[in-house]
């Protein structure tokens, strides 16, 4: 049987890869994909904990996380398309309308 810490280690590594992606990339779509990666890492740890404690509540939470992620992707990509129409770029450095 695979120990719990290995599953959590995989989750940590995936989450960190997502964090590095958000910190280093400038393409808004790739930043968005890194966020998806982080959501998946969290889902993995939720399922691991669910298995560790022997009840299904963690898996149900993952179900809702996936629902929210789907909604988030639809709205987020719509925003990216709207910005691209207006500014002709998806570089996050040029989206500074709300910069103080």
């Amino acid at each position: 049987m695979v120990p719990v810490s290995l599953y959590l280690f995989l989750s940590v590594v995936l989450f960190s890869v997502g964090v590095v992606g958000v910190l280093t990339r400038k393409n808004a779509i790739i930043i968005f994909m890194s966020i998806e990666l982080m959501l998946n890492a969290v889902n993995l740890s939720l399922i691991t904990f669910s298995r560790m404690h022997g009840n299904l509540d963690g898996q149900l939470l993952v179900f809702f996380v996936m629902t929210v992620a789907a909604a988030e992707v639809a709205v987020g990509l719509a925003i990216i398309i709207a910005i691209f129409k207006k500014k002709d770029t998806v570089n996050v450095d040029e989206m500074n309308l709300m910069k103080w």
Binding site: F9, V17, L23, M52, H53
Partner: peptide, 27 residues
């Protein structure tokens, strides 16, 4: 970019210690 990489590694190490202290295993 290197700063982002270093931050990511630091993140992994910060989270590693609590993970390997978990004694409960899968039921």
């Amino acid at each position: 970019k290197i700063i982002g990489g270093v931050l990511g590694l630091a993140f992994v190490f910060a989270l590693l210690f609590p993970i390997f202290e978990i004694e409960k295993n899968l039921v």
